[in-house]
Amino acid sequence: MEIEVIKLIIASIICWINFVVVDTYFGLPKKPGVSGAEVIGKKIEKIGGNINGGYFMGNIVCSPDASAGTLMAAIFYYAMGFEGGLIAALLIFIGNRLCNDPGYAGTIGTITATILIYLCSGFIEPQYFIAGMVIAIFTIQGFHHAYASKLLGSIAKKMGRI
């Protein structure tokens, strides 16, 4: 029982670091990519958060970025094995183009997530990565908006991508 909880926590931390680093490197906190993300950013700033973290959360809601890429890579690895990750990258690219986005962040995030799951496949099974991604998206989008946006803004400032 305890070994399962430890596996779940380790998979959640790996997923969180992967998608936050890839999304911040491709410039999601800098400007709202699609026009709907600006509304969410302004609203989060009004309730006491950071504007760059608000743009980050709005961009995640409005188009499938590296967060969706990590979830899809885990799903296809669970169903098909290693070569499913490349199919997931193609589907994420189609979804990005449907939402009027360039689509670099989604594809790169899917490929890096596939490689990470392949490296960890000795001691963590892929279904723990699915639950880990759900926990990671819950800590950002569903727990407390103002605190999460401040945390994302400070991470973006530390990486120098604002």
């Binding site: 699609v34 026009s35 709907g36 509304v39 809601v61 188009s63 499938p64 979804g95």
Partner: peptide, 17 residues
């Protein structure tokens, strides 16, 4: 399911603006 529901959410956010 995931991609089509993301398109729906994008349309809702655009309409609020």
């Amino acid at each position: 399911y995931f991609i089509s529901s993301t398109i729906s959410s994008n349309a809702i956010a655009h309409t609020i603006g």
